[in-house]
Design a protein around this nucleic acid. Structure first.
Lengths: 213, 213
DNA sequence: GTCTATAAAAAGATAGAC
DNA sequence: GTCTATCTTTTTATAGAC
């Protein structure tokens, strides 16, 4: 919550915060489209219709802006994960809800997600550590649901870590094409994805042969 | 096959080609680790133990080097896809083989794959167009297998495009952790992934209720 | 083929006027 | 709060000696 470096964040006018947020959201598509390093301060100024001095007044540094984009996404992802944990339910239901929430975030913030999936190595020091920790925390929650499903007998005896990677890949990868205003809504994707994944890992019905290819 | 710009490639000594290939493979981890734009020519010289003049003698330009890394991966991926097409077999078998081949490439070239999944927007002009076309061609093959499985009745009545995206995401995303010398081999991953995906999309056995959670 | 030196452009960030 | 001008560093690429 406290910014890694210096000053800012606290004790700023609401207007400052609003403008900063707007800069974050306007800059994300630039980073997504051309890459973080390939996007110059000049590009950011132009997109935000601001001079260099004014821009730096809000962002502190280019990397701080990058970190803010990461936080914007992770805040939403973690919020969704908390809602799911609060809601409770069986492991299959939990996994389906996690998919709903994750795809909803990706659908609403495709550019932010693009940046966070591509440019996280550009974060340094404390900022990098903090981000990695939040990301790991989320992944652990997915693994925990899978483990619970194995223990309850609803899922096959699978490797929770590996299966979580399969699930994460399937869902995260939608950042390439899932977009607001696109052909498909988050729910249009979440439902078939849950169908595939839950049938894919469910414990086979006793006595029915599900043998090889 | 013919390089986009100028000169090179043809009419060069075998030694030149070998050295160039070695430079490509040595540079891929740098681009993967720090990003294409963040990696300077100086970094490349140091890693390849070459001066600037010598390096440019082999690579032509930084972007040409990036394109070569892309080609290195796509050549392997397309080769694997051709082998699968040649081998024939049922749609489920085809899909499992495609997974084997794809994960094998990712396992052997994780850095190259990282670069191609992250830095393809850095390609410009003809190079970008050519790469996109090859990538689409591969994706269409996956879709075709899914469509065939639906028509043969082995797969449920699913959306081939969307299901291909799920499959691609699940497999491609392994670039984050699948590595030679790691805990898991390509096959260790391909088998459980195929189990999940094929069970996930198979046509439910008649008369057996596979209903909701 | 490989080097050193250098060009020429662009980067991120800051200073200080208004 | 926002601007313009500038500092400092770094970038990709080339020239020309060896």
């Amino acid at each position: 919550m406290a910014p890694t470096d210096a000053s800012s964040e606290a004790r700023r006018s609401p207007k400052w915060h609003a403008r900063r947020q707007s800069i974050i959201d306007t800059s994300a598509p630039l980073f997504a489209g051309r890459g973080y390093h390939a996007t110059g301060i000049t590009d950011l100024c132009e997109a935000n219709d601001l001079g260099k001095g004014a821009l730096y007044h809000y962002i502190g540094s280019k990397e701080e802006l990058l970190a803010a984009i990461h936080d914007r996404v992770m805040d939403e992802v973690m919020l969704g994960a908390e809602r799911v944990a609060q809601a409770g339910g069986s492991p299959p239901a939990q996994l389906a809800m996690l998919g709903d929430e994750l795809l909803d975030v990706i659908h609403r913030y495709p550019d932010h997600v693009w940046v966070f999936l591509h440019e996280f190595p550009a974060l340094t020091g404390e900022r990098a550590a903090q981000f990695r920790e939040r990301r790991r925390e989320y992944e652990r929650q997915v693994e925990a649901v899978l483990r619970a499903g194995v223990e309850s007998g609803q899922f096959r005896d699978l490797d929770p870590w590996l299966t979580a990677r399969a699930w994460l890949g399937m869902h995260n990868y939608t950042y390439l094409w899932l977009r607001p205003g696109g052909r498909l809504t988050a729910r249009d994707v979440a439902k078939p994805f849950a169908d595939i994944f839950l049938h894919g890992i469910e414990r086979p019905t006793e006595g029915v042969d599900q043998g090889a290819e």
